[in-house]
Amino acid sequence: MIRSTFISFGLHSFLLTLAYFGLPALKNNEPIELPIDIVEDTPISSKTSLKLGEAKEKKIKKINKKIEKEEKIKKTSPPPPPIPTKKEVEKKVLALKKDKEIKKIAKLIKKKPKIEVKKKNKPKPPKIVKKPEKLKNKQKEYLAKGILKTLTKPKIQQEKIKKEKRNSNQEVLNKIKTLVGNSNRQVQQTEIKLSQTELNKIQNHVQKFWKMSYGASEVKAIITLKISTNTDGSVKNVSIYDKTLYQKDKFFRATADAARRAVLDSSPLPLPKGKEKKFQNILMDFNTSFINEY
C-alpha cells in the first residue's frame, strides 16, 4: 500500500508539474497564446485529384472492404511471414518509391491507436479491436488517393498497401501492447461491476463472525481493515489500517482485534464467481454505532 501510494504520489506530482508547465491557464502572468490551427495537407501529385465517377468509387470501396475483411481475419490469427521470392523483392523495390505515402498511412494508423490507449478508462475494451473501423474511413480516403495515383497498376499497389497495412497494424498493436503492458487486463478489471446483492452477501457473512464486548460501544471511529484475498475467497492477509489509534485507544484496539478475528474466522469469503480478482485487495469498515441502538 505504502509503495503504491508513493508511486501514485510521484506520478501525480509529475502530472501536476506537467500540467503547470503545459497548461497555459495555470500561469497568470503569461500572455495567452493563440492555438495554431493545423490544416491537413493534401498530397500533391502530377495527376488530378478530382473525384472519380460513382461506379468507380463503389468498386474501390468494395475492394477496400475486402481488404478490411481479410485484415480482420488476419489480425486474430496472424499468418506466418511469407518466404520472399524474387518477384516480391522486385515489388518491394518498386514499393520503396512510394514509401512516403505508405509512411503517411502508417503514421495515421499509429496515431489513432494512441488515442485508444488514452481512452482505456472507458470500460469498453472490446472497442480496442473495433475502433480501427472508424479509422478506416480516413484510411479509405488515403487509400483511394493512393489508388488514384497509381491507377495504372492498381492490383499491385493494393497488394503492397495491404502488406504494409498489415505490417504497420501489427506494429501498432505490438507497440500498444508494449506501451500499455497489462492495461488491457486492467481495463477489463475496472469493467467488472458488482451488484449490491453480491456485496451484501459478503457483508452478512462477516457480520456473523464479528463478536465483541460491550466496550465496543466506546469506539467512536470506524475501524478499517485492509484485507487481501486469494481467488478462492480465503483471506491471505488482514491488517488494521489506523495503527496510531490502535496504539492509543484501548477500546479501538480491542474492537479492531475482534474485527480482525471476524475476518479471519469468516475465511473463505463468499466471493462472486468470475469477479474474484476485484476482491484481491479490499477495505472493510467496521462500525460499532449499532451497539448504542440496543
Binding site: M212, N281, L283, M284, D285, F286
Partner: peptide, 24 residues
C-alpha cells in the same frame, strides 16, 4: 491539490465493504 489527491488516493484503489452489525 496534493493533499486532496493523496487523501482520496489512499483508499481509492480498493473496494470497500461496510460492516455495520455484529454480536455483543
Amino acid at each position: 491539490v496534493l493533499i486532496t489527491l493523496i487523501s482520496s488516493l489512499a483508499f481509492s484503489e480498493d473496494l470497500r465493504i461496510k460492516i455495520n452489525s455484529g454480536q455483543v
